[in-house]
């Protein structure tokens, strides 16, 4: 199931076109603080992490949009009952789809990270940048993608895909990029899927708002190795909740 879901998703042209266009826009609009303008003597770890963090600002939006219809489309296509007749549980179906679709959706983002890492590696004559690239991807981008992907797959079952997409865009801005001093926001907390804590730890300085004073102060410790690991664990753990809820919803529908 994971393989089929992966192949189905990876062949989606819109996934590649959307990711490609947004990646180009992100690179062009990164501004003076972007990784393209890092000093020549910046360490490989900082360069790779800066690129991973830059991708994490906007590319997960496409991931959320793509994954929003993976479960609801079964009803639309009228294949729900057919899938329910298979000798698998609802949990297996949800997890299989989640892992396959997420792996496929993360592939263009991983490629963007590798391309940026490769280019930096060549221009800086430092192969270590390429070695740090998968590490930065795994720590900065992947936990957020798991978190976003899980909610994007399951919440449309309850809210419908269009409503989810509207709220998701608003959430992404509010929960990641809106300064916590302006209004109560999840931005800068351990539950920030943009990878603020891990990026801050890898960069050695605050990437965005990690640890800044604000709402839910308990979730805003100083960014360091331990709190970065805690952030990853929280994102993965909380990401499991919608998957379990989705399994229950599908199981209940099957027996209704």
């Amino acid at each position: 199931m994971i393989r089929y879901e992966f192949l189905m998703q990876i062949r989606k042209r819109s996934l590649w076109i959307s990711m490609g266009l947004l990646a180009v826009i992100t690179v062009l609009g990164q501004g003076d603080a972007g990784p393209r303008y890092l000093p020549d003597d910046a360490s490989a770890r900082v360069v790779a992490s800066s690129w991973a963090f830059l991708w994490s600002l906007l590319l997960p939006i496409v991931a959320g949009m793509v994954l929003a219809d993976r479960l609801v489309r079964d009803d639309r296509l009228g294949v729900s009952r057919l899938l329910e007749s298979l000798p698998t549980t609802a949990t297996t179906r949800v997890m299989g789809r989640f892992l396959g679709a997420l792996a496929a959706t993360a592939t263009p983002i991983f490629l963007a990270t590798v391309i940026a890492g490769g280019a930096e590696s060549i221009s800086r004559e430092d192969p270590a940048v390429l070695l740090w690239t998968p590490i930065a991807f795994g720590l900065v981008l992947l936990p957020g993608l798991v978190f976003v992907g899980a909610f994007a797959m399951v919440v449309p079952l309850l809210l419908t895909a269009p409503l989810f997409r509207v709220l998701f865009v608003g959430y992404w801005f509010w929960g990641n990029m809106l300064g916590p001093s302006y209004m109560p926001s999840l931005a800068g907390t351990l539950l920030t899927p943009v990878g603020d804590y891990t990026a801050s730890w890898l960069l050695g300085e605050r990437a965005l708002y990690a640890g800044a004073d604000g709402w839910l102060q308990l979730l805003r410790p100083e960014p360091n190795g331990v709190t970065a690991a805690l952030s990853v664990a929280l994102l993965l753990g909380v990401g499991l909740i919608p998957l379990l809820v989705g399994s229950r919803v599908l199981a209940r529908r099957a027996t209704a």
Binding site: K12, R13, S14, L15, I17, S18, L21, L22, I61, V62, M65, V66, D69, R165
Partner: peptide, 8 residues
């Protein structure tokens, strides 16, 4: 494409 338009 829904994805392309929504993402755009």
């Amino acid at each position: 494409s829904v994805v392309l338009a929504s993402s755009g």
